[in-house]
Design a protein around this nucleic acid. Structure first.
Lengths: 193, 193
DNA sequence: AGATCAAGTCAACGGGCGTTGGCAAACGGA
DNA sequence: TCCGTTTGCCAACGCCCGTTGACTTGATCT
């Protein structure tokens, strides 16, 4: 059942995501978030309890990974990378999460959960041995989060300069290999046609 | 010429690195750093001016990359990854830098400089076209910083569980490809024997 | 021995923060 | 229309932070 204050709640959440993404957890003040949402700081407390609770609500995030079951096995890396890039250019929640994770344990937990619950199954489906899924999802995380870090947080100029297609072309073989390559074989076999 | 206060200065710097690495820039308080160094907070101000100056001093960092000019071209990725892993397990300055970079522009500048000045030349030496060096150094950054982020900051369990040799085996082909692969050829050609 | 200066201690400041509780207005069911 | 509830605003609290300046101690040199 809708409440009269739903618009306010949404405005707070939107402002919170923006400030958390831009400034990180501690620099993003409740006062600044409230100002951006054009409401009083005390409203934030009323609706979300405290700053931690607000962050938890603002950091709700789903990757919405597509079902890759029917994709050609050789294209899984490419599709996954494309989806990642698209997903976090349209929504700065993940950047907020990344910025906050550096000091906020709850943000770390969230990221952990995202990779375990959302990337893990993809890895389980495409890895030669499903038992390796967590390790493979972890490797995927190192590359995808590293790219996001350099592009959206550190804004390293050469990484920002890449367009989406170039970036995907560089990263796809890496992800493909992390997902599917056999450990004791030629590490790059998976990249081959 | 050595000053009588050199021991104190060094103690402050060591404590600062520890606190910055563990807590990030804003959570690491001058008071906590001073307590760890067993001196008065005002000494920090006397010797380093302000918190920003202390951080700048604590974040002095060199990768000490080995000269890879004589290494077999096919092993450059492997050696580089090995050196990276070794380098930042022995010194938490880079973790401090990474944690602080999320909110501190000066930390971002430092990281930018490290990759431009220290990794760039390596890329210039091994890339097919030296003009691509910045882009290639940037790609190397996405993978190496992403790995450090997941392992030392987020502590993603599967990434922490990898030992150095396993990690190097996974990352080396990626770095090798980012440094040497030709853009419009088979992306994984560089990995081949 | 006394003068000089570096090294270290102490108490306090101003400011910004998260958070609280009281009070006014707007709404909605009876 | 009246009354309870929701929504919003305001002022303030207590806390901790970076930073300051005045003061004491101790080493060094003539």
């Amino acid at each position: 059942m809708p409440r009269r204050s739903d618009a306010t709640r949404a405005a707070i959440l939107a402002a919170a995501r923006e400030r958390f993404a831009a400034d990180g957890f501690e620099r993003a003040t409740i006062r600044a978030i409230a100002a951006e949402a054009r409401i009083d700081p005390s409203m934030v407390m009323r609706y979300y309890g405290n700053k931690e609770g607000l962050f938890a609500a603002a950091a709700e995030f789903h990757l919405h990974l597509p079902d890759l079951g029917e994709a050609p096995p050789a294209e899984v890396g490419e599709r996954l990378v494309g989806h990642f890039l698209h997903r976090w250019e349209q929504d700065d929640t993940l950047v907020a999460l990344l910025r906050a994770a550096v000091t906020q344990e709850s943000a770390v937990d969230r990221i952990r959960a995202i990779f375990a619950e959302q990337v893990g199954p993809v890895a389980a489906r495409h890895a030669p041995d499903p038992a390796e899924a967590p390790a493979r999802a972890g490797l995927v995380a190192t590359q995808m989060l590293g790219f996001a870090l350099c592009r959206y947080v550190l804004r390293l100029q050469p990484v920002v300069a890449l367009d989406k297609a170039e970036a995907a072309a560089w990263l796809a073989p890496t992800i493909q290999r992390y997902l599917t390559a056999t450990v004791n074989s030629d590490a790059s076999a998976a990249d081959r046609p």
